[in-house]
């Protein structure tokens, strides 16, 4: 059974059909790419998958559960975590606290326990700190744990966003243009990180990207979107040589 199965997904904003008859199947452990020209509806699909928008048609199945029309918070609990095209960190919180917010639902204690500083508070906070530091170490951010998130350089902010998303313990990770604004060296490093995340956490990853080097370098399969509809899908190399894709998106 596929991890993610999307059937006939569609959404209209007034008269605009932003996404129409969108189908997608992703297997467990796959690194999947979603590409297409600007305004094709890629981020809209992410917003549909994470419950920011409610689809007008179709359904979304995650690991055998129907998550269509659920709220963002519920969908996260079901196992989809994401990063954003324009970085959205908790800018006033420390790097460590950003990850700890991601761990929120996995290390519960009540507000009263926190206020009264019961023994459970100290125990759970310690576990949280250890887990968060472990994650930060993976992304080489452990030395910056005390920094304010907004003081991190751009590349590290992107990494912190991925770390925070992983902290929620997802089954599927959505990355929205992870390489945007990065120089070639940073992109190279990011590719390594994404691969590492997939292998180390046995993660399934769906990413939107314009950087063709990154896409052809790490994605195993691709879906090309154009005007809200699937143009083509399949193995990366085959898709990138498809004349339809070259005409619509890549250029001669």
């Amino acid at each position: 059974m596929a991890l993610l199965e999307v059937k006939n997904l569609g959404i209209s904003f007034g008269g605009l059909r932003a996404v129409d008859d969108f189908n997608l199947t992703i297997e467990q452990g796959e690194l999947y790419g979603l590409i297409g020209p600007n305004g094709a509806g890629k981020t809209t699909i992410f917003n549909l998958l994470t419950g920011v928008y409610k689809p007008t048609d179709g359904y979304i199945m995650l690991d055998g559960e129907n998550i269509t029309g659920k709220k963002t918070t519920e969908i996260n609990r079901h196992g989809i975590a994401r990063t954003f095209q324009n970085i959205r960190l908790f800018s006033e919180l420390s790097v460590l606290d950003n990850v700890k917010v991601g761990l929120h639902n996995h290390y519960p204690y009540s507000a009263l326990t926190g206020i009264l500083r019961l023994p459970k508070y100290f125990r759970v906070e310690k576990e949280m700190n250890e887990k968060a530091m472990e994650l930060l170490k993976v992304f080489g951010l452990d030395k910056e744990a005390d920094y304010k998130a907004s003081n991190l350089p751009y590349g590290q902010q992107r990494k912190l966003e991925i770390a925070r998303a992983l902290a929620t313990g997802p089954k599927l990770l959505l990355l929205d243009e992870p390489a945007a604004g990065m120089n070639p060296n940073e992109t190279q490093e990011l590719m390594k990180t994404i691969r590492f995340v997939r292998d180390e956490f046995h993660m399934t990853i769906l990413l939107i990207e314009h950087d063709m080097k990154l896409v052809s370098g790490i994605c195993e399969r691709l879906t090309v979107l154009n005007f809200g509809q699937v143009l083509t899908e399949g193995e990366t190399t085959a898709v990138l040589h498809d004349p339809k894709v070259i005409a619509a998106y890549l250029g001669e």
């Binding site: 918070t73 996260n76 975590a81 917010v101 929120h104 925070r164 929620t168």
Partner: peptide, 19 residues
């Protein structure tokens, strides 16, 4: 408190991590 401040800093991101 962290959850409250996370919502203050970025509501959409807070929802996306299940808060």
């Amino acid at each position: 408190g962290r959850a409250i401040m996370a919502i203050r800093d970025n509501r959409i991101a807070a929802e996306s991590v299940g808060i």
